[in-house]
Design a protein around this nucleic acid. Structure first.
Length: 187
DNA sequence: AGTATGATTGCCT
DNA sequence: GGCAATCATACTG
């Protein structure tokens, strides 16, 4: 069984790149991470920029946990907390290539098309069954499971501006797996 | 207490 | 390409 081997105490942009190619599962369902975005406390686009609030408290907690927030009143989005307790940084998981428990992912999405199953943070959240109860959960114990890249093989990374933000829109902290057809959109 | 605003998605023209 | 859905959070008064 491959171990994740990832160090969440690193900066969010480093973690965001290291996560590409790894596999995240919730209750055994999920897939290979093909798209991420980094957010940092000193980054105007980050929820943590203005300091800790009840909503973003998990971002300021211990690294290696989930930060879950509601997007546009509709979607649940999943982040991995980075750095250290008291520092607000995290990585938004934006897209997966479905590999495990595909039937349950499809059932929750009400959609069969593998390409659109987890291609976007809201879609991914729905497919994995994310909700508020996952906020602040540890990533190294159930229901979460993180698996490293098979044979620790290197991956070809893409990077570019983050999606859907108005501040710091030029910072290239969106990362993707080159050639993947499961990205939320092109780079 | 009222209002403005999203780290989005899906449907409409 | 445009825009409605839908609501928690943050900000203003």
């Amino acid at each position: 069984m491959a171990t994740s081997g990832i160090d969440f105490s690193q900066s969010s942009d480093t973690v965001a790149q290291a996560l590409i190619g790894m596999t995240v599962l919730i209750d055994g369902a999920g897939g290979r991470i093909v798209e991420t975005e980094a957010y940092d406390q000193h980054d105007p686009a980050s929820h943590s920029f203005a300091g800790a609030t009840p909503r973003n408290a998990a971002m300021f907690g211990p690294p290696g946990r989930a930060y879950v927030y509601r997007s546009y009143g509709i979607h649940w989005c999943l982040n991995f907390v980075c750095r250290e307790e008291g520092y607000g940084a995290g990585v938004l998981i934006r897209a997966l290539e479905p590999t495990h428990g595909i039937a349950s992912l499809q059932a929750r999405r009400g959609l069969d098309d593998l390409r659109l199953l987890c291609a976007g943070p809201g879609r991914l959240g729905q497919a994995l069954g994310i909700d508020r109860s996952f906020n602040n959960l540890r990533l190294d114990e159930p229901p979460f499971e993180l698996l490293g890249r098979p044979h620790a093989e290197p991956v070809a990374l893409l990077s570019g501006p983050r999606v859907g933000i108005s501040k710091a829109a030029d910072v290239p902290w969106r990362f993707g797996l080159a050639g993947s057809r499961f990205l939320s959109r092109g780079f």
